[in-house]
Amino acid sequence: MVAISLSKVQQTAPALVNLYKSAGVSLTKHGLDGLRAAVYLVVDHSGSMRPYYRDGSVQALADRVLGLSAHLDDDGTVPVVFFSTDVDAETSIALADHQGRIDRIVAGLGHMGKTSYHLAMDAVIDHYLDSGATEPALVIFQTDGGPLSKLAAERYLCKAARLPLFWQFIGFGDPDSKQFDFLRKLDELAVPGKRVVDNAGFFHAGEDPRRVPDAELYDRLVGEFPKWLVAARAQGIVPAQGTVPPV
C-alpha cells in the first residue's frame, strides 16, 4: 500500500498527480512498491547553479521528488538541504505548498558560494539520526560540479555506509565535464575495502534536466536502491523485516 493515496495527492497537490503515477510505475518495476522509506533532497546552491534556479530545473526536481516521496513516506514533506561553501538552509518542501517553493526559499538565502558536499551530508546524517527514524532513507543529492574537498566527501560517504542511508547523486550540466569525474569515482568506491556496502549511485541529467522524461528520471533515481537494500539488510544496517525487493 502506498504511503499517501492518489485521492490525497489529488486533493493537496493536483499538479503532481502525473508525477505521482509515474513514480509508482517505477517503484513497482523495481520491486519497491509497499516499501516505507524517508526521502531527502540535497540541492546545490553554488554560483554556477544560478541558471538552473532561473529556468525552473530545481523546482522541477523538487516536484518530482515529492511525487516519489508520497509513495514512500506518509508525512507529505521532504526535508531539503541547500548547500554551497556552507549549509545555506535546512528546510522542507510539502505537497500542500510545493508550487514556487524553491523560489521562496532561495529568495531568503544569501551569497551563492562554492561546493562542499560533506557539510550537506553531515546535515542529512544529523537530521536522520535526530528524527529517530527506523526506516531506510533515500537521499537525492543534486549538484553541478565536484566538491571543494574530495577527501572529506569520500570520508563522509564511507562512514555513512554503516547507516541506513542511500545517496543517489544526480548531476546537472555538461555530461562530458571533468567536474563529474569525482562522482563517478565515488560511485565505484571499493566494497568492502573502502565501505561496508555500496551506498551510492550517480547519474547525469544533462544540461536541461527538465527534458529528462519522468519515467526515465524515476528509474534512475530508484534503480540502485533495491540492490543496496539487500546488501544493507545482509549487513544488519537495515532491519530484515519489511519489503525485500528483488535484485
Rank of each mutant, 00 (worst) to 15 (best):
V2I: 09
L6C: 05
S7W: 09
S7M: 12
T12K: 15
A13N: 02
A13W: 00
A13H: 02
A13E: 01
A13Q: 03
L16Q: 01
V17A: 02
A23D: 00
L27P: 06
T28H: 06
T28E: 11
H30R: 14
D33R: 12
D33E: 14
G34R: 08
R36W: 02
A38F: 02
A38I: 02
A38G: 14
V39H: 05
V39K: 08
V39Y: 03
V39G: 09
V42W: 00
H45T: 00
S46V: 01
M49I: 00
R50A: 15
R50M: 11
R50S: 14
P51Q: 10
Y52W: 13
Q59F: 01
A60S: 14
L61D: 00
A62T: 03
R64M: 00
G67C: 01
A70Q: 03
H71F: 03
D73H: 11
D74M: 08
D74F: 06
V80D: 00
V81R: 01
S84M: 03
T85W: 02
D86Y: 07
A89G: 00
E90Y: 01
I93G: 10
A94I: 05
A96E: 14
A96L: 08
D97E: 12
D97H: 11
H98Y: 12
Q99P: 04
R104H: 11
I105G: 04
I105V: 15
I105K: 05
A107K: 11
G110F: 02
G113H: 03
I125T: 15
I125A: 15
I125V: 15
H127M: 00
Y128G: 09
Y128K: 11
Y128T: 08
S131F: 00
G132L: 05
A133H: 13
E135W: 07
P136N: 07
A137R: 09
L138M: 06
V139C: 04
V139Y: 00
T143D: 04
D144H: 10
G145N: 07
G146C: 04
P147A: 03
P147V: 00
S149A: 09
A152R: 13
E154V: 12
C158A: 15
A160W: 02
P164Y: 08
F166Y: 15
G171C: 10
D176P: 02
D176R: 12
D181N: 15
F182Y: 14
L183D: 04
E188N: 14
L189S: 12
A190P: 10
P192A: 10
G193R: 14
G193W: 04
G193T: 14
K194V: 15
R195I: 03
V196A: 08
N199Q: 07
F202S: 04
F202M: 06
A205F: 07
A205Y: 08
E207V: 11
E207K: 12
P213K: 09
P213H: 04
A215P: 03
E216F: 10
E216M: 14
L221K: 07
V222N: 03
F225A: 06
P226V: 05
P226A: 09
W228R: 05
A231L: 07
A234I: 06
G236Y: 02
V238P: 08
G242V: 10
G242P: 12
T243N: 12
T243R: 15
V244A: 14
P245M: 09
P246I: 03
